[in-house]
Amino acid sequence: MRQVLIYGGFMVTMSMGIRHGFGLFNLPITMANGWGRETFALTIALQNLIWGAVQPVTGALADRYGAFKIMIAGGALYALGLAGMALSSDALNFTIAGGLMIGLAQTATTYSVVYGILGRNVPAEKRVWAMGITAAAGSFGQFLMIPAEQGLLSAFGTQDALLMLALMASLMIPTAFMLREKNFHHQHAHGDQTIMQALSEAIRNPSFRLLTLGYFVCGFQVVFIAVHLAPYLKDLSTTYPAVGAPAVATTALALIGLFNIFGTYSSGYLAQRFPKRFLLSGIYLGRAFAITAFIWIEPSPMSTYIFSAIMGFLWLSTIPLTNGIVAQIFGVKYLTMLSGLVFFSHQLGSFCGAFLGGYLFDRTGSYLLVWQIAIALGVFAFLVNLPVKERAITRTVNA
């Protein structure tokens, strides 16, 4: 179990950490190539949509043929995509490398695939705790890579920095071999549940649908804040100059990454002692209260830092809880695929949070409406997670 935790954590640290710093490359790349910012934005948007849409397919392949084979392909695609971003002077080639290739790579190297391995190799009573450990590793990667990637950019420039990140991403390939499951097999005896049967079973299950709705809210809130918090603070600088200082936004985002580590670990730990659906509901309600206080209290650097710390603690703590409930209800045979299906809802929410933040700001000149939507969605997610049933379903076949 220790080896799975160490190398699974490292895989997620690399895959999530590298992508977290992509925003730092926006202006250097677009200015160097004479592109508009929409080129870079389209690439990252495409990356996230592909990640969400293809994740269930990648998960099904991992469940069928073994996760380590999928992760080898993902590590190679990640490194090639970063190298392609570095060497592309054409917008289409850049979008293919950074959007298509890295989007596909993330489906094979992030939480869903790693959680499938954990689900099969960690005792059921420690499963959510192990998922929390791995999520904390991904959170640490997000916290670590912001200064690391900024340092590479400052010291070596855009192209060489991306090529160095490609070399770092290639380390995921040998890591995948360390996660090879020696006793993995996927046999279909007569009467066993097939992938399509598992998919149909999940879609018909009310608890699965409720979890999926809640995960949409998670994606909406975190990506809206990640993308629009800095410009929101900048807009406040006309009335509250101290809040609009660039260092405030940088510190706020760093605090989110830092407290995310503690939040994801804590959610996995607490899930061993309390019902996971209540913890999930509490997280969403806590976000709603935190956002409400943030937009109504007079802004200051300190209030911003407190908000960032609270949101960071609640940031990705939904991941081990949601995936843990999926495993508890349906078992681990198709966990990677089903986790990917839930994650697709998360990514749809992410797209809506990022897009509506910009769209409604352009229409109204304020982020207030989007903040209010985020609060309402938090209350909605609080309510829909309460009736989730955390018990294994009864089947008439041995699946």
Rank of each mutant, 00 (worst) to 15 (best):
Y269M: 13
L229E: 14
A226H: 13
T318I: 06
A293E: 11
F307E: 06
F294R: 07
M302H: 10
F344M: 15
T250I: 13
I256L: 01
I297R: 08
T238I: 12
F274Y: 11
F274C: 08
A293C: 12
N260K: 00
N323T: 00
H346S: 11
I256P: 03
A242D: 11
G268S: 05
L280W: 04
T250G: 13
L280N: 07
T304Q: 05
K234M: 03
R287W: 01
L233I: 02
Y215K: 09
Q221W: 01
I295M: 06
Q328H: 02
F262E: 07
D235P: 04
L270R: 04
G244W: 03
G263R: 05
P246V: 06
T239L: 15
Y269P: 02
T318N: 09
I306W: 01
T292Y: 07
L280M: 13
R287K: 11
T322W: 03
A247D: 08
H346Y: 03
V227E: 13
S266R: 02
N323M: 07
S267L: 11
P301G: 00
Y232F: 13
K276A: 11
V342C: 11
Y215V: 10
K276I: 11
F220Q: 09
H346G: 00
S266L: 09
S267E: 08
T212K: 10
P299G: 00
A249D: 10
S317E: 12
S207Q: 12
A309G: 00
F224K: 10
L236A: 02
I329G: 08
M311A: 00
G219M: 00
I291T: 03
S281Y: 11
Q221R: 05
Q221C: 02
V248F: 03
F278D: 12
V227K: 13
F313C: 10
I310C: 07
P320L: 02
Y334C: 14
I225Q: 00
S339N: 07
F259R: 01
F208K: 14
E298Q: 15
A293I: 15
I261Q: 00
G282W: 01
V243Q: 08
L285N: 14
I319P: 06
T264P: 08
T336Q: 14
L285M: 15
L233F: 10
S300K: 11
F220K: 11
L213H: 08
S317H: 05
F208H: 15
S345M: 02
S345H: 06
A327V: 12
T250P: 09
I291A: 03
N260C: 04
L210E: 11
G214Q: 06
L233T: 06
F307M: 02
L233C: 06
T322V: 05
I295K: 07
A249V: 10
S339C: 05
V243G: 09
L341I: 15
T264F: 10
V332S: 15
P246S: 00
P241V: 04
L338H: 01
G331K: 10
A327Y: 06
